[in-house]
């Protein structure tokens, strides 16, 4: 199998609001991320779900007009501006409509930090979300040993020699396994994130 995938990236496909499959995939990948981020900001489950829906609505409106220039702003950053804006709106609205005392939303608003948006938190959540989703997609393509070689060293941060010994592999073989899984992961992630034209530059060092 040649490495090249000819299917356009998810973001491109999203411009067609009729492409239900693309939109379903988008919603299933990104809803948990948005939801988890909102929960991390202190929203209750019901409110987080509401905000996530607002974000999806805004994205659905904007993406068809979205001129995506990877050199200017990544999708991750752009999505964050939307999420942050909706979460801030949420807090601002709640501030204007005081609820009964004891309402957990009020408490959370008081305890939460509506104004200091954590870009770093978002970046990590975003990465983790995408990675875990991609990992799920490709897990079945690899033998257990290959997969564990990658997962234990790259994610669980175990020592390479130790893992190699556990799995009965040479260090060379371990490197090969890591490379295979990493390459495949990167392909899957890019198929969601970028335009195929924005080619991955294989950096060294």
């Amino acid at each position: 199998m040649a490495g090249a995938r000819t299917q356009p990236s998810l973001l491109l496909r999203l411009r067609d609001t009729e492409d239900h499959a693309a939109w379903s995939q988008f919603v299933s990948i990104y809803t948990p991320l948005i939801f988890a981020f909102c929960r991390g900001r202190g929203l209750s489950e019901a409110d987080a779900a509401d905000v996530a829906q607002d974000v999806l609505k805004a994205v659905a409106g904007a993406i068809p007009r979205f001129n995506y220039d990877p050199s200017r702003s990544s999708f991750r950053n752009w999505l964050f501006t939307v999420v942050r804006s909706k979460v801030n709106n949420f807090f601002a609205t709640r501030a204007r409509q005081p609820r009964r005392a004891g309402d957990t939303t009020v408490q959370r608003f008081v305890e939460g930090e509506p104004d200091c948006a954590s870009e770093e938190t978002w970046r990590r959540e975003y990465q983790a979300n995408l990675l875990l989703w991609a990992a799920e997609q490709i897990r079945s393509e690899f033998k257990d040993a290959t997969w564990n070689a990658f997962w234990r060293t790259a994610i669980l941060a175990e020592a390479i020699e130790q893992v190699a010994a556990d799995l009965g592999l040479s260090v060379n073989a371990l490197y090969v396994a890591r490379s295979r899984v990493t390459t495949r992961l990167k392909q899957v992630i890019q198929s969601v994130e970028c335009d195929p034209g924005a080619v991955e530059s294989v950096s060294h060092g």
Binding site: R123, R124, E125, Q127, A128, L131, L132, A154, I155, L156, A157, Y175, R178, S179, T182, T183, L185, K186, I189, V202, S203, H204, G205
Partner: peptide
């Protein structure tokens, strides 16, 4: 492996603790 590490740095960051 050096190439792999660079790729991982992009995807996972400095460590995988958030994952």
């Amino acid at each position: 492996e050096a190439i792999t590490r660079a790729q991982l740095k992009q995807m996972v960051g400095l460590d995988g603790s958030h994952v």
